[in-house]
Simulated assay, not measured.
Amino acid sequence: MTGAGDRALIERFLEMMAAESGAAANTLAAYRSDLVLASTFLERGLAEASSDDLARLSGNWAELARASVARKAAALRRFYAFLVEEGHRADDPGASLPRPGAARRLPKTLAHGDVDRLFAAIAERMAQEPVNPLDLRLAALVELLYGSGLRASELVSIPRNAVSPDRPFLIMRGKGGRERLVPISDRARAAVARWRDLLPAGSAWLFPGGKAHLSRIRLYQLLKELAAQAGIPPERVSPHVLRHAFATHLLEGGADLRALQLMLGHADIATTEIYTHVDSSRLVALVNARHPLVDLPRRPA
């Protein structure tokens, strides 16, 4: 029987899935079923399960279709990633789950024109007199998301004074407790400064909300409202999509993959390589223009 602790965490996870990716009702129902069944099977429940427990669980999927195994494993991996991000677990046992069909889908991204439309919608709000303080907050959020490639959980939990007016970076502690240097553009620092001037003196967070900081769910909602105003389908815009756009557009501009790995906080550069889906014609043009053999005379036929 599913424990009360697991049930509450599953419902919070599904709420996050609905806000983050606009998951359909059928998808949420399938994930709920998969997670509840897994929780019932595991003696210690999902929240306390070890890698060995999950390996034993996946051994019972041998007779299932590959698509079913893939869905169950994906549901559990995303659930454990959620637990780690929310601080309910220090480790992620999801690596022990099977990965049928090794092809990895590319995350959704935005074209340069789409990003321009988002910022145009923000500029339209900022042109109002007087400026709504919540629009100043939105401007700071989006500048940091797209300009620095922050994860949603990292963004909402930034301390009040972490972004310094005279320092073009901040030190961020991300997944696994790893620290990294995150670049902060002049635009982002200016947007943060305007918003921070309005914060109550006792606020510990740059983006306060409720009893602590702004929630990730509220961040997703704000971005979807902005997307609708900009004429972009809301399901195409999320914090992860803006993080992906940050990485993709930097690579298209000639950024080094190793530098991008450090900025994104990936432990393995193989994770960063998913962002290299740049246009093949641009790569061909790059080789034709930059390769040393280009300047050598051609041998006669």
Rank of each mutant, 00 (worst) to 15 (best):
V241N: 08
D186K: 10
I274T: 10
L199T: 10
H266V: 01
A270D: 15
A289F: 11
S185H: 07
L296T: 09
R189Y: 11
V241K: 01
S215W: 00
R282L: 14
A201P: 08
V237C: 08
R298T: 11
P292N: 05
R216P: 08
Q261M: 08
P297N: 13
P239R: 12
I232K: 08
Q221K: 07
M263E: 02
L251I: 14
G210H: 04
A259C: 07
L293P: 03
V241Y: 02
G253S: 01
I184K: 01
L286K: 10
T271F: 06
A230K: 09
L242G: 10
P200T: 05
R189Q: 06
L296V: 04
A255F: 11
L257E: 13
P234S: 15
D279A: 13
W195T: 10
R180L: 13
A285Y: 06
E235S: 15
W205A: 08
A228K: 11
A201K: 07
H266G: 10
A245N: 09
M263A: 15
P208Y: 01
A228R: 13
R180D: 10
L206V: 00
H266K: 04
A227T: 02
R196N: 04
V278R: 07
A267Y: 07
G265H: 08
I269M: 13
L283S: 04
H244L: 09
R298I: 06
E252D: 05
A212V: 05
P233L: 15
H249T: 04
E225S: 12
D295N: 13
G210N: 11
I274K: 12
R216Q: 11
L222I: 00
R282H: 05
I217M: 14
P183K: 15
D186T: 06
V182F: 13
G265T: 03
T276P: 11
V241Q: 07
S281V: 01
A190P: 03
A201W: 00
R187K: 06
T271N: 14
L251T: 07
M263G: 04
P183L: 15
A230R: 04
Q229C: 13
R187G: 12
L181M: 14
L242C: 10
E225G: 07
S280C: 06
D197R: 01
D256G: 00
L206I: 02
L223D: 00
L283Y: 03
R298G: 15
P208K: 06
R298N: 09
A230Q: 03
I184M: 14
R299K: 13
